[in-house]
Design a binder for these strands. Structure first.
Length: 280
DNA sequence: AAGAAAGCCAACCGCTCGGCA
DNA sequence: GTGCCGAGCGGTTGGCTTTCT
């Protein structure tokens, strides 16, 4: 059966046609109206009583990933990209956990970003996208570019040099809520509220900004100046120390990668707006 | 201008987990 | 202890859009 087709089943419970594929405006309206008056949860019942010929799962996904008023759409800001990179280094493919720290962004969106934008580079470099080596590559080569971009944006908007202030004042690039429900969302206020309430990410940004100028120093120094392990609990410190030997070995391998070779020129370093620094 | 290739992302699938009877 | 069910999560798919040739 096609993913866009109609799912005809013979079971007692699903004796009616179940719609699949893209949602129509009418379906969206039904779902939004029902949730507005009855609230979320009990998705199977919701689907039934809202008059939607969809599975509860499908309704839940549609609501959480698209219709929910605080869902943001559009390109991820450099700050958000930086957060994703850092949090993925910390938690791996825990998309929902990462999404909790990016207000308005869904796990699905972050997952798509990682798979289509970030892992592309891993493939090109023939490195496992979840490996420490690739995370280190990101930390040493991508994060500084993001920070440069953030600072550039900061200076362009005449905001204070503090990265936290930058976060608070910068308007997300092409970041808009679902057009249908745009009026219900105030991105700026939401962003501010999030930033004030979440010291973890503010800490990451400020720490990384402070370390920006030191990012490309030798591996030994970069370990000491680590902005990679953002949650420096005593356990993490112990773990970091125990991994230092492995890490230094990986750094040696990293140095052997042809980052600036011809093969990379058209891929890793020019892959996006943050790679333009090479041309300048 | 047109076809091919690549990129993007909404949506689906299968699995796991937790609550409850 | 066990089975059921709703909810959530991460992986994958496939169609649409954009870019390239």
């Amino acid at each position: 059966m096609s993913r866009l087709g109609i799912n005809m089943t013979n079971t007692h419970e699903d004796a009616f046609e179940l719609r699949r594929g893209p949602w129509t405006v009418e379906e969206d309206d039904l779902l939004v109206r029902y949730i507005t008056s009855h609230g979320e949860g009990h998705w199977n019942y919701l689907a039934k009583f809202a008059g939607l010929k969809r599975t509860g799962k499908s309704c839940r996904l549609r609501w959480l990933n698209y219709l929910k008023p605080d869902v943001k759409h559009g390109n991820l800001t450099p700050q958000e990209q930086l957060l994703i990179l850092e949090l993925h280094c910390k938690w791996g493919n825990r998309w929902s956990k990462i999404a909790q720290h990016l207000p308005g962004r869904t796990d699905n969106e972050i997952k798509n970003y990682w798979r289509t934008r970030v892992q592309k580079h891993a493939r090109q470099l023939k490195i496992d996208g979840n490996s420490k080596k690739f995370h280190e590559a990101i930390r040493r080569f991508w994060v500084p570019r993001l920070l440069e971009n953030m600072e550039q944006n900061s200076s362009e908007t005449s905001s204070p040099s503090s990265s936290i202030s930058t976060l608070e004042t910068q308007t997300p690039i092409n970041t808009t809520p679902c057009p249908k429900y745009r009026s219900q969302v105030n991105n700026s206020d939401q962003h501010k509220e999030y930033l004030h309430s979440n010291s973890l990410e503010s800490g990451i940004i400020s720490q990384l900004t402070a370390e920006n100028s030191e990012m490309n120093t030798a591996c030994n120094n970069s370990f000491q100046d680590d902005g990679y392990h953002v949650d420096i609990s005593s356990n993490n410190i112990l773990e970091m120390e125990s991994q230092q030997e492995i890490f230094l070995s990986q750094c040696q391998q990293m140095e052997e990668i042809d980052w600036f070779g011809e093969g990379m020129a058209g891929t890793f370093w020019n892959a996006g707006e943050f790679w333009d620094f090479r041309k300048s």
